[in-house]
Design a protein around this nucleic acid. Structure first.
Lengths: 351, 351
DNA sequence: TTGTAAGCGTTATCAC
DNA sequence: GTGATAACGCTTACAA
């Protein structure tokens, strides 16, 4: 026995200090077995004699024992936690992706740690550092453009990564998304096919938000391919503020009255555009086509109902979870995971 | 030395197995000090000699060392992780609360673990069990109605809890929200004051969603107090589906044409109601007042713009984080935390 | 100011 | 089928 057996007294009920949670050993004592047997009963019940198993289970129930996941993580070097970083939680764009991810992970016994970067790469890098510090088993990142630090941290710590909501030929690791450039291009083709010749893009400036910037790029390509003038742009600072969108569109309509089609970076902006057009006495879709992005819930009930591009957000989350789980369980498929889940134009009334 | 010194070889770069992350001891060796000195340099730099500190920091930077938060959690019995459960992530209602919570926690060095219950108490209970198993330092729960298991688990494990988005006289522990009954009551008063005499409530059935049920309760109280008939009800199964809301309102308008005011459980439903009214040739607000709840982003740009009730969602998240942090840092204020952050009616055009 | 020893609650390993 | 022992990577308590 050491001279300073530091053995802290385990605080118990009623002595004023918080009760220490029940541990494995306590269950073991109660069941008259060793802690390893309890551990086995929990993790590999088939390797434990039925009678033993039963008495262990009874003890667990009686004591209300809940295993300490952190301790297990330390011993196994697997935390069973996955972290995801989305640009924002302030609106519903990424909500269904987070939901799909969380649900699929939880079904497999994993938890989700969540962070929002505010579309800022340095914030994302800080989050990645923090999450790796927590020893998450994998990382889900939105987009394919990241800070150098982010890439470095990931490489150093060899964390499995899934990038989502975009496409690239050189992902960090796994990829589940769709091509934003292609989405912009298809929007343009649609407008051209419907006789629109003077387009404008409403959204955040490309340098502030790379994915909507890529959609603008696609739109420009489509304009060029159709022999039309380059699209006008109405950039907003807050890419989600309806008020800002309304002002930006009002200004645009005043500046370039000839514009006959709007491609908005998201449906919130598109709804704002609808309102601005109405206020300016511009008829939609007659004189102006309005096309949104995201197929938000409101898209179906605006007047006119919004023609928009639907993204399979929940499916992206689920597929990302699947990719992560396959990797973590060594079920790695033949090749590298690179899934393009596509998008679809939802034709309603506004374009 | 024991006969079976199990010392697993630490996998290193280049041998095919994943590299083991750098540990504290490795930094210590590199800096020529003991691991405790490195630990101190990280946590209490002021207790370390400047020269030592510098060499430790250099070693940390050179090796790219990131402390293992899980191991630290085990040693300190503090995980520095807080878990939150919201009813849904599928839409933006709770998005700003989650954002406020995550931001405030992260600023204090805590991470957020997130789950969505789908408005199901048993799912909530399962999440609580899982989160407690991860030894989160505190729990944030939406609403004040919970499964018995939830209360039991919380009591057994003595986890600090903040309930949010509602009010009650007997919270589990801390509470940050507003009174849903009062919100419904104020909506009713507003309608009465504006001469509306035949109201209807559009939303989920009370047994499926207790908070919107409480708003209905408040609305009924207001009707009684004003000597008006009990409000009609148009219940929808999916409380967020615009399509369902549109149908429900269309049916209601056909069934009870005399209805002159709608109080909707959320703005998504209210926007759907606007559309349904328009299709039925019912003028808003002339013949029908429409009042929403939540002040979603779209509320400002619908036609007519939506009169609704604004909830300080982000502030609720921040205040919940503050309460949690005060408790965890022993900064517990005098009394129990019970904060009513209120709500406000936003007058626009629809009512 | 720094170091030593013990322990946080679990699981891997090997022996019986 | 079960148990003893030694980690997992860190911090607390204490000694130097």
């Amino acid at each position: 026995m050491s001279s300073h057996a530091a053995q802290r007294p385990r605080p118990r009920h009623g002595d004023g200090t918080p009760a220490a949670p029940v541990r494995l050993v306590e269950v073991a004592r109660a069941a008259g077995v060793s802690s390893m047997t309890v551990s086995r009963a929990l993790r590999h019940p088939e390797r434990v004699a039925p009678a033993t198993l039963q008495s262990v289970r009874r003890a667990i129930a009686r004591l209300g024992y809940l295993p300490d996941g952190g301790a297990a993580a330390l011993a196994t070097r697997r935390s069973r936690v996955v972290a995801a970083i989305v640009p924002t939680l302030m609106n519903s764009v990424y909500a269904s992706t987070v939901h799909g991810l969380a649900a699929a992970l939880r079904a497999a016994g994993y938890e989700l740690m969540l962070g929002d970067s505010g579309y800022d790469r340095e914030v994302e890098a800080a989050l990645v550092r923090s999450f790796i510090g927590r020893r998450v088993d994998a990382l889900v990142l939105t987009g394919v453009e990241h800070a150098g630090t982010t890439r470095l941290l990931i490489a150093q710590h060899r964390v499995p990564v899934v990038e989502i909501w975009d496409a690239t030929r050189s992902p960090i690791d796994m990829l589940v998304g769709f091509s934003n450039v292609a989405a912009g291009r298809e929007a343009g083709r649609w407008l051209a096919a419907h006789g629109r010749r003077r387009w404008a893009f409403v959204g955040t400036a490309p340098e502030r938000e790379d994915r909507s910037g890529k959609r603008l790029k696609g739109l420009r390509e489509a304009a060029r391919a159709a022999g039309l003038p380059a699209p006008e742009t109405a950039f907003v600072v807050d890419g989600m503020s309806a008020a800002a969108g309304r002002e930006a569109v009002a200004a645009l309509l005043a500046r370039v009255p000839a514009v006959d089609a709007l491609f908005c970076a998201n449906d919130a902006l598109a709804v704002a555009a609808l309102r601005a057009a109405h206020e300016a006495g511009v008829e939609v879709p007659g004189r102006l086509a309005v096309m949104g992005f995201g197929d938000f819930d409101v898209a179906a009930v605006t007047r006119p109902a919004l023609t928009t591009i639907a993204i399979p957000g929940e499916a992206i989350g689920e597929a990302a979870a699947e990719a992560v789980l396959d990797r973590l369980d060594g079920r790695d498929s033949v090749g590298p995971v690179r899934r393009d889940l596509g998008f679809s134009i939802v034709r309603r009334e506004s374009a």
